[in-house]
Design a protein around this nucleic acid. Structure first.
Lengths: 228, 228
DNA sequence: TAAGTAATTTAGATAAATCTAAAAATATTT
DNA sequence: AAATATTTTTAGATTTATCTAAATTACTTA
């Protein structure tokens, strides 16, 4: 018999693990590794093993020793609920409280754990049912559904490809501040001018302006919806 | 040498104890009792003793075995910061998210622990620097200062006294719902029509309407600013 | 494939916040 | 003031989330 998710409560720590495992399994291979989770959460592999055990008992992840974890259907629901709250609060902070988009992540990390489904729905309504957060990441609806066109990392695109910059797949303030400094904003049209094989760096023209130079470390995190 | 408060971080649990001790020492005698704290926080006296010890080490309370606790100057600052956040969030929930005033306490109990001084200031600004929360409780400013005229519990007033209903000194949803049902709202003018010595119950006329009957248990918690 | 390296898990500790049951101190009552 | 009742504290456990160090398993590479 499957446990009733509605009645389940997860601690802040558990929610953070579930969210991280969800993100990592979205972004990559089957079987998320202990080390990857430890890195993401700035904790130690041994701690991850312990927590994974507990989450497996609660049936929010599937786990077999030495084989990595996978998020379960139940776990996906929990993760999407947390992600929904995180992104709604980010919209609130930027749209209503006039924060810059590089300042909101840390605060949203706290707010995402506030427990009240009515609150989430009211906030969503107050914000006008936004479809994306300030970084362009889609906001799941109440049922956990969200729409996104297919996107690729800028680093995967070829010379002369054209696309729309729709999302930053990284919350590091340094990256966001750098993008601000370079005047690179979400929704900008771009064209790949040149790509250096040796180091993967690229020359990109945003909004038909003079091309800028971006390293592979940066282009990896810029998600593009291809246009043509 | 006094510890630097700015650098201090308190856990949710610690903040709740500090807030409760502050409230209890405002509301009553010197030396808040272990049992009173335990009742308020729905915990056991033994747990309270442990926590008080810790808070005394951190110098936010003054404590001597068997003599009860008192909040220190440092502790007062921490308490007022938490109270400030609690009340600002309550205003947000009622004014912006259209919650009823009897629904906000539980959510504000969570939101009051969000750590970000910029957030608090921005929220305050967004709400237009409100002076009181939806229950009429004053909101401390950044420095912990707040203004409030002298108030008395309705239960302490005499026949023919007139006053303004300015605050509910209790967050129990049942009480708030009852007040809603009776159409008793903050800011209403009232007059004491009759007072029964035997049980302390009172007949009160709100806004010159037909008098309503209120038990001592209720009139205890209705705070009145005397008018004449 | 055997050896060496890297990743993962186990075992045993620690810190925070709580609990129960028993002991000690304080208050109250006759 | 002595007896009784209440409050508070101590002692010893428990749970959650961590950690370090050692053991185990899996992966790589020569």
């Amino acid at each position: 018999m499957p446990k009733i998710l509605i009645d389940m409560n997860f601690s802040f720590a558990e929610e953070n693990y579930i969210k991280t495992i969800y993100h990592l399994s979205q972004a990559g291979e089957v079987g998320v590794s202990t080390n990857a989770i430890a890195d993401q959460l700035h904790t130690k592999p041994a701690s991850v093993t312990d927590m994974i055990r507990k989450l497996a008992n609660k049936e929010v992840v599937d786990y077999q020793k030495y084989q990595g974890v996978n998020i379960s259907e139940q776990g996906k629901k929990v993760a999407l609920e947390v992600i929904r709250k995180h992104r709604l609060w980010e919209v609130f902070l930027v749209e209503k409280l006039k924060f810059n988009w590089d300042e909101v992540h840390e605060i949203a990390e706290q707010l995402e754990h506030i427990r009240s489904s009515i609150l989430t729905e009211r906030l969503d309504e107050f914000l006008g049912y936004p479809k994306a957060d300030p970084h362009g990441d889609p906001i799941p609806d109440k049922e956990g559904k969200f729409e996104t066109g297919p996107t690729v990392a800028l680093s995967e695109m070829s010379v002369d490809d054209i696309g729309l910059f729709v999302m930053v797949a990284n919350d590091d303030p340094h990256l966001l501040q750098y993008l601000d400094k370079m005047k690179i904003k979400l929704g900008m049209k771009l064209k790949v001018i040149d790509k250096v094989v040796f180091d993967g760096s690229m020359q990109i023209s945003f909004s038909n302006e003079t091309p800028v130079f971006l390293s592979h470390q940066i282009t990896q995190h810029l998600m593009i919806r291809k246009v043509a």
